[in-house]
Design a protein around this nucleic acid. Sequence first.
DNA 1: CCTACCGATCGGTAGG
DNA 2: CCTACCGATCGGTAGG
Lengths: 187, 187
Amino acid sequence: MIVEAAANVFREKGYDGGSLDDVAEALDIRKASLYYYINSKAELVGLVFETAMDGAREDIDRIVLIEDPVDRLRALVEHQIGRVISDLSHFSVFFDHIGFTKESSAKSERLRQLERSYVEAFSQTVERAIAEGVLPDVDPRYATRAIMGMTCWTYKWFDHDRHDGAALSETCLQLLLGTGQAVGRQG
Amino acid sequence: MIVEAAANVFREKGYDGGSLDDVAEALDIRKASLYYYINSKAELVGLVFETAMDGAREDIDRIVLIEDPVDRLRALVEHQIGRVISDLSHFSVFFDHIGFTKESSAKSERLRQLERSYVEAFSQTVERAIAEGVLPDVDPRYATRAIMGMTCWTYKWFDHDRHDGAALSETCLQLLLGTGQAVGRQG
DNA sequence: CCTACCGATCGGTAGG
DNA sequence: CCTACCGATCGGTAGG
């Protein structure tokens, strides 16, 4: 698919560094032919964003409904990491090139809102975990960013041949929940 | 300084998206004049990397020497966050455009080694925290990445007008140490 | 989905 | 530090 090809190109070379010629070459067609499917390069990268977002949004609405606090936090971390590592190209483009769409078109405005509502749901889940005592009593704004960093950062280094997503999720959860023989934690 | 101007331009527009004309304009000179100071665009972005790295390296060598496990971990988190937020432009370029220097010149090889030894020192500090029981008994490789993500991710969202670096550091530490109240603060 | 092409912009150089 | 300029590449269009 054209969106997959674009995601791979933009991941390797960046949005500005990757050309439509590169995308076309990956599809074994000519650049001009791309315009049969898309109207502009900006629209193409918008489709990459959308693909990354749409999948992630499905999960989070379901996660919010989980009742057990630990299960809910676990689901949040596992799904964030799972989404990112199963779609490294899309998320690389999404994370490193958001804000490049200068135009405030209806499309990019919709994307920005999609992202906002995603962060909002993520944030609420963290807030509840704090209120329920599953996480320490910290500033929920910073805790949200910290946990997003912990999980999203994955796209910078994760390699499917060398790393294991489940083990990573487990590590993150243990760091957050403080389980294990942590000092001053029993009680 | 020319490196500061370049960092700002590359942060806002990316390495490929930001032109030498942009950098020159920020300095109120002509593009050709930049070549009195630099030999290429790649060299310029290399100088941006170097600036970000050199500062961070100073700290970490000192942090490794701290004896108290909690103090050492605290210093690691505080300095990582402190460096990133005091140099948002440089680190944005560093994190999002590393690997773009295709040439394996002596310079870029030196930079890659600088980065490797930095990650190595960071990693050792996390490993020791696990061994000493300050962090849960998790895979140190993933724990290193998780903590780097937690702290480095800051460059994506931190705004000096709206956020407080010290409060963020405190939140990260409490999440990691699992204490409701701050640990290791009083003497 | 193609060939052919355009205007704009880019990194970099000549020569002062 | 400047004016002037070059070759290459880019996103996008015409017309089929």
